[in-house]
Simulated scan of single mutants.
Amino acid sequence: MSTYERDALAMDAYSNAVTAAAERVGPAVVRIDIERDMAPRYGRYAPPPGAGLGSGFIFSSYGQILTNAHVVEKARRIFVTLADGRKFPAGLVGSDSEVDVAVLRIGADHLPVAELGRQPLRVGQLVIAVGNPYGLNWTVTAGVVSALGRTLDVPGSKKMVNLIQTDTSINPGNSGGPLLDSAGRVVGITTAMLPMAQGLGFSIPLDTVKTVLARLAQKRQATITGASLGVGGMRVSLDEQVRRALGLEQPAGMEIVEIRPHTPAEQAELKRQDIIIAADGEVVSEPGDLQRLIRRHKTGEKAIITFLRGGKRRQVTVVL
């Protein structure tokens, strides 16, 4: 095989990886438009300096969306446009400005969701960003992981730490969109670029995102009365080999990312990274499924939780 033929094959493999990843996540990527309150200036109200624009992605088929906190900061109204063209008003579930993560929710369900990665990133690894730079909807750019664990001083904001640095092109409007691996799994949220630099982009790693989701879930749970398991989690795709070995038809489960102390989950010795796949024999694919099934119970009643640990199916009975 000639050098030209080898180079052509390598380029084909690269192109196919980027294309497949973009097609896989595309239906779950959203455009976010916001309206901000009029700001008082010299005794009168003047319009804000342009409407806000950003990106995000659906991580729960019940209409929950991840984006950057700065995208929706001080928003009076938030609108989300799906890949199929439908547009919804969105509510802010919660945000953490220190790590620049926010969760939105829209009034829709049975939505396509982005698969979340589980493998650690490596420097030099291919990554792909999908978003809406400058309002150019569903734009795809690709590059590599340039460095991990970066710290970035953002003007007018707090120092951001533990960021993924890439040479993937990230422009205004990309913020909040997914950073993907070559399999189309989300490994981070694109968050910042250096205005005077070229080839430098930064993203929030998935572990940080999981921590924020667990914290927000804990705050919401504190306001909910009735039965509770005491966990926070997120939807993850199930390993294909594990699915085949266990005869599972469902493609996803709920990974536990947080267990609150002195709760039924802790007493039942559930652990972080366990993947709940059923409650009382009914399928659990994401947090909304588990919440719906647990809320059928009264405090003091029992529930049977089926979960995966180390690729093996386990079951535990918890007193709620």
Rank of each mutant, 00 (worst) to 15 (best):
Q241K: 08
S97Q: 10
L136C: 10
I170R: 05
L229Q: 01
D289S: 08
R313E: 06
L111D: 04
H70F: 05
P264Q: 06
N16P: 00
I277F: 06
T263I: 11
G253M: 07
E269Y: 14
R76L: 10
N171Y: 12
E249Q: 12
G124Y: 09
V231P: 06
D153M: 14
M11R: 14
S228P: 14
L104K: 08
R36Y: 07
G230I: 04
L152Q: 09
G91E: 03
R86G: 15
L148I: 11
E35S: 08
G50S: 03
A183S: 15
A192V: 09
G188S: 06
G63K: 08
R36L: 04
G56P: 00
L229Y: 01
F79Y: 13
K298H: 14
M1W: 09
S203F: 01
A51N: 09
L308Y: 07
A17H: 04
A183G: 12
A142G: 00
I275H: 01
N137A: 14
S15Q: 14
V103Y: 02
K302E: 10
R24W: 02
G173H: 14
V318L: 07
N162I: 02
F57G: 03
R31V: 02
V144Q: 07
R243E: 01
N171P: 01
L111M: 08
R105L: 01
E23N: 14
R77E: 13
V130N: 08
I304C: 10
S157E: 15
G124S: 11
A69D: 11
A197M: 11
T168L: 03
V242M: 02
P261H: 12
F307R: 00
D100E: 03
Q125R: 09
F59V: 03
L66D: 03
G54E: 03
E266L: 08
V154M: 14
H262W: 13
Y14P: 00
N162A: 00
G91D: 07
A39E: 15
A39M: 14
A147H: 05
V242F: 01
V101L: 06
A114Q: 05
G232A: 11
P261C: 07
N137F: 14
S146K: 13
I204D: 11
W138G: 00
I78T: 10
